[in-house]
Design a protein around this nucleic acid. Structure first.
Lengths: 205, 205
DNA sequence: CCTATATGACTCTTGGGTAAGTTACCACGC
DNA sequence: GCGTGGTAACTTACCCAAGAGTCATATAGG
């Protein structure tokens, strides 16, 4: 089998393995066995386990980051923007949901190379998140920079949680997830009066 | 040093190490070095790495679960309930924030014993979360069980994210975090109209 | 015959776990 | 007071499995 085809196959299997089980839980022998080849061939093509993971990140990153940029141009703001972004993510991930988790894998080794790749791809995502969060806080008359930081973290984790929940429910389609997300946002926002009441109680500025 | 005192010291250091770095990233040699003792002593007192982690979970669980029950009795519903719960958690964790992460450590080995301990302590938390989520969805006229499941997951991750963000900002007090959380909830809920507009667009039931 | 594809059979490090022994302390009979 | 034995606290030096990474070698197409 020619190198290019073999590399693609290995990469695809590795993405799934890393995404589903996490970096530490996947051994090079596992990947080799899944691909029906021997370990040295993977080392020949990808150099190291870290190198293989780096290739997975680049593959997944190109897929996701482009979509984030695309949906950001729809011109929505606030929660509507969040929902449009989610819709795009669900569509892109439909047949390869596990690649999402590569970027949130806490078991990957602390290496400058991997950090740089993750940062490169998440930069666009976090930038878009920061824009969306800034819109929401501005609408509420809130200019606290730490609030913005915390809210961006919360949004990222909401996205992550919805995708991970979806991973555990393979029968649910991307379109259904989009509708579900919208329903959940509506349910939560309906309770806004309660939030303001509590805010007044705890004396929040 | 007598056994009880030594055990307490090891446990305290192990909780911090596991909580901050995660199960896989902490070696028994690390813990031993931090405690200024040798590895076999830890094995003598805790049996295994998993046993040590189990003890950490029990220690942390007793602290947190009691508080969840306490705040649940305040009788709040919906977002107000979420905020009261968060307030209690922030107070309890003030001086040992890292123990929160023990229960969300995805790098722990898949063992029946650990699963049981985590389940025992999180049962109360997830039960309370399910109640709160049900209240919110009922108010929105939503009876979809999968929506409830997904929203409970989202809430848990929002709590987790806020605590983890707080971990990274040691100078912020528990009271400040409570106020911050309330402000963020208000900012998000203000945008409810947008959510309903999008829901109509995507055709959500 | 030469290069790309491919492998079996290694090495070496990491880290969980253990066997066997050493020291410190304390109760107790004299 | 003081040997003395027993036990709790503690360590050194090791074993062993898992898994990352390598080397010498084999085969097959141009």
């Amino acid at each position: 089998m020619p190198r290019a085809a073999r590399e693609t196959e290995i990469l695809s299997l590795a993405c799934r393995a890393f995404g589903e089980a996490g970096y530490v839980a996947v051994s090079m022998a596992d990947v080799a066995a899944a691909a029906g080849i021997s370990k040295p061939l993977i080392y020949n093509y990808f150099g190291s386990k870290e190198g293989l993971f780096a290739s997975c990140l680049r593959f997944a990153g190109d897929l996701i980051a482009d979509d984030i940029d695309r949906t950001a141009e729809a011109g929505q703001v606030g929660l509507a923007r969040a929902l449009v972004t989610l819709e795009g993510i669900f569509e892109v991930l439909e047949e390869r949901r596990w690649i999402w988790r590569l970027f949130f894998d806490t078991t990957r080794p602390a290496s400058q190379e991997l950090d740089a790749i993750v940062a490169r791809y998440t930069a666009r995502l976090t930038e878009r998140a920061a824009e969306g969060v800034a819109e929401m806080l501005a609408a509420a008359g809130n200019a606290d920079p730490l609030d913005a930081e915390a809210l961006a973290a919360v949004w990222a984790s909401v996205f992550d949680t919805l995708v991970v929940w979806w991973l555990g429910h393979p029968e649910v389609s991307a379109a259904e997830m989009t509708r579900r997300s919208a329903r959940l946002f509506v349910a939560v926002t309906l309770d806004g009066d309660a939030a303001q009441r509590v805010l007044a109680e705890v004396g929040g500025a």
